[in-house]
Design a protein around this nucleic acid. Structure first.
Length: 799
DNA sequence: ATAGGGTTAG
């Protein structure tokens, strides 16, 4: 019930809390002759006004009645109200109508702009205030400085600093605190510190501003030093200080500090403050202490979207992507709303897991829940598809986005997607396309491009890329050198790779030497390998992988003494080769296998399948490659060990279970071994299956007897020679000639396949004649035509 | 009558 009562020569209001319509009615009946008691009533009215609409009604009623001109006090109240409702425009129209502005009114209007994040208007009004000759006071500067801070307007901030000094506020604590924050937010942490050090009196806010400044400047140690210093001054950190210090601890990654912040939180009963618990949660997760993070998460009285996202990303960042996905299920049960950040975290987790099934499910979830897909999320989805082996979907999604929806990361993600699938040419094409769209490649673009060239064996293109990069004044970093060494090394240009290392402007790191060591392993260069290994053992003495690589090099040339020495070295350091592990997706199930794994439910069947597979592929020329076995054991035992490599078990399981026609997708934690690589080519050929293996380095698409990596990391000639030696009878003269022709043309892949085919088709010398015609240079397609006329099955070449 | 410090995501 709202009533307007009239009493004496003024009026008064009884209850005006709820209905704006009733209020409007009330104002229209106000007397047009203002006096003190009516002003008091307006005051009361304003105080209880709770919507922008009713405020506007009060405003218009006051304007028509001419109150405002006579009472700047009322005007200020309305400006403050507008400021609370984030409507500085209306505030300004009122402000302009007021005569006789005092500094209080100016401050109020400036505050309205600052609170609404209209920083340039704040500054314009401040300039106007100075021109008008009204002196800014100790309240003015904090507002102005805050506006500068929020937009990193250092120049304007410095001007205001000078004004504040001239006006004599050099030791006003509020002004100084605002200055500290302004300098910090403009990236001038040390200037902020200088102001902080000159202060004669500091309260909690000042300390917190400085602590936050260091944290935001990624200088967490200094944050912690100040935090302890502050406590010595007997100031007790409040929840805001605690949030900052927890973030600093998160950056530092020190679990002990995280626990002491936790203790502090418990002592001060901050557990109910969701800001505090969120940042503590994040700190635990960033310290690698996911389980403690989860304990805290479970104890939290209140959880918001950030809590869920922090916990999810905690799992994802600590390599526990599957737990992140589990928690996501719970999140939906709890009825918490996933936002685009949630989706981003989970999509990346799927990419990490390499689970196409889960990735696709998430993608449809995102679409079905009508979540806004911004550029960052779209990039993550593209990346997920590429990393889960579905490059087609990645490309489709990329091409379906408009230029305005793409940023530099979109291009980088797509380039590295092509690269990891061995499509170097396509990656290079994207470079030109992005430049046409006016996006300049950055250091990440070139890392992806160089690694694409490396995977695809595009040495000349890679060299050009490296020099283009310098021309575009992107400075080559260690990672770029590592890519170059990798590329040159894999191509067998070990000298050039080594020379590049010698020419490097800075000291080579483990990435660079590691690339060289790998190249030495591929090309069997013991000497250079030893040099690389020597450096690696110094740089990363605890990294088992380098010892393994070096012993592989020794083993390949039967230097068993050296192998033994390295293995003893590893043992004395307590290093173990990381256990190989491969997973294969079967419908909604994921099946994992270790080397010689006997824990899988159906391991006996899987073993039988592997054994029969090996027999079958041996018939068409597969030769077990024992060189990748470290141990100095009998050759037959080596072959036995080879058969139960984790990836072979996973593929065998896939062949057994997954419908023909479906791709078998295997993910392995380490690089796949040469022997498995060769075996899968044969398996893909005789079973007509597409097998994709994602290893620690890249994707291998096996189809029709060859691999998309073009055997770049697994020298093809080995396999080719093996087939040649074992499978070709003298009568297959034509086949040999064609094979030689392919060799001459540099089509080693096709040569190997042809040799395979000769065996399978049972080709006879008499069936073919135009041998010389074939050897003449000319388009390959016409040669294939000739063979096809002769009824020779060559469909695998004409894809 | 008015003021300064806060968490997640390559």
């Amino acid at each position: 019930m709202h009533r307007l009562g009239l009493g004496g020569n003024g009026w008064y209001l009884i209850s005006c809390r709820r209905s704006p319509n009733n209020l409007f009615f009330s104002y229209s009946s106000l007397s047009s002759r203002p006096n003190t008691s009516s002003i008091a009533s307006y005051d009361h009215l304003l105080h209880s006004c709770n919507s922008l609409n009713s405020l506007k009604q009060i405003h218009s009623s006051l304007s028509t009645s001419g109150f405002i001109k006579q009472s700047p006090h009322l005007g200020a109240q309305i400006i403050i109200k507008y400021s609370q409702f984030s409507d500085p425009l209306s505030a300004r129209s009122l402000f302009d109508a007021i005569h006789g502005l005092n500094s209080f009114l100016w401050n109020t209007m400036i505050r309205a702009y600052t609170n609404a994040h209209h920083s340039s208007e704040t500054l314009q009004l401040y300039a106007l205030m100075r021109r008008t000759g009204v002196g800014p006071d100790n309240y003015t500067f904090p507002f102005v400085l805050k506006a500068c801070a929020s937009r990193s307007l250092l120049f304007q901030g410095k001007l205001a600093h000078g004004d504040a000094l001239r006006c004599g506020f050099e030791s006003d604590m509020f002004v100084e605190a605002a200055l500290v924050d302004m300098y910090a937010k403009c990236g001038q942490t040390d200037d902020g510190r200088a102001v902080f050090d000159r202060m004669t009196k500091r309260d909690l806010v000042c300390w917190t501003a400085m602590i936050t400044a260091y944290e935001q400047a990624l200088r967490p140690k200094e944050s912690l030093v100040l935090f302890h210093h502050m406590q010595q001054e007997r100031l007790c950190p409040d929840s805001i200080t605690t949030v900052s210090i927890a973030s600093a601890v998160a950056q530092l990654g020190d679990a002990k500090s995280a626990r002491s912040v936790h203790a502090h939180v418990l002592r001060n009963r901050f557990l109910e403050d969701v800001f505090v618990t969120n940042s503590l949660l994040d700190a635990y997760a960033k310290c690698g202490n996911v389980d403690d993070a989860r304990l805290l998460f479970d104890q939290m009285k209140e959880r918001d979207g950030i809590s869920w996202n922090s916990m999810l990303s905690g799992y994802a960042q600590n390599g526990r992507a599957s737990e992140a996905l589990l928690l996501f299920n719970q999140m939906q049960v709890y009825g918490a709303n996933p936002n685009p950040v949630t989706a981003l975290i989970l999509v990346s987790a799927c990419a990490y897991l390499g689970s196409l099934h889960l990735g696709k499910e998430l993608h449809s979830f995102i679409i079905n829940s009508r979540m806004a897909i911004d550029t960052a999320l779209r990039n993550a989805i593209i990346d997920m598809y590429a990393k889960c082996g579905d490059l087609e979907s990645a490309v489709q999604m990329f091409n379906n986005s408009s230029p305005s929806e793409r940023n530099i990361s979109s291009w980088n993600v797509m380039i590295s997607g092509y690269g990891m699938h061995g499509l170097g040419k396509e990656a290079l094409e994207l470079l030109s396309r992005m430049q046409e769209e006016g996006i300049e490649p950055n250091h990440i673009t070139f890392t992806s491009l160089l690694s694409s060239c490396s995977h695809a064996g595009l040495v000349d293109e890679g060299r050009k890329c490296f020099s283009d990069m310098i021309k575009l004044s992107v400075t080559p970093e260690l990672k770029h050198y590592a890519c170059m060494v990798d590329m040159l090394g894999r191509a067998g240009l070990l000298c050039e790779a080594f020379n590049l290392i010698k020419e490097m402007p800075s000291e080579p790191n483990d990435g660079v030497w590691g690339a060289l060591l790998l190249a030495c392993r591929i090309h069997g260069n013991t000497e250079l390998g030893e040099l690389a290994a020597k450096n690696l053992f110094q740089l990363e003495p605890e990294h088992a992988g380098y010892y393994v690589l070096m012993s592989n090099i020794y083993a390949a040339s039967s230097k068993w003494q050296e192998v033994g020495k390295l293995r003893r070295d590893m043992k004395s350091r307590g290093l173990r080769k990381p256990a190989a592990f491969s997973v294969v997706e079967f419908g909604k199930e994921v099946h994992g296998f270790h080397t010689a794994d006997q824990t899988h439910r159906q391991f006996r069947e899987v073993y039988r399948k592997v054994e029969s597979l090996v027999v079958e592929i041996k018939m068409v020329g597969y030769m077990p490659d024992r060189s990748c076995i470290l141990h100095d054991v009998e050759e037959e035992d080596k072959e036995h060990i080879l058969n139960y490599h984790s990836e072979k078990l996973a593929v065998a399981f896939g062949i057994m279970k997954i419908d023909p026609g479906m791709t078998i997708l295997v993910t392995k934690n380490l690089r796949m071994c040469d022997d498995c690589h060769s075996a899968f080519k044969f398996i893909s050929y005789i079973y007509h299956r597409k097998i994709i293996v994602r290893d620690a380095n890249r994707f291998h698409h096996f189809q029709g007897g060859s691999c998309s990596c073009k055997d770049y990391c697994h020298p093809e000639l080995k396999t080719g020679k093996a087939i040649y030696k074992t499978s070709i009878k003298k009568s297959d003269h034509l086949g040999q000639v064609i094979a030689q022709t392919y060799s001459d043309w540099g089509e080693l892949d096709k040569r190997a396949l042809l040799l395979l085919d000769i065996k399978l088709v049972g080709l006879e010398e008499s069936s073919v004649i135009p041998v010389k015609a074939l050897k003449d240079k000319g388009p390959l397609s016409s040669k294939i035509g000739i063979l096809e006329q002769k009824g020779i099955n060559l469909k695998i070449y004409s894809k």
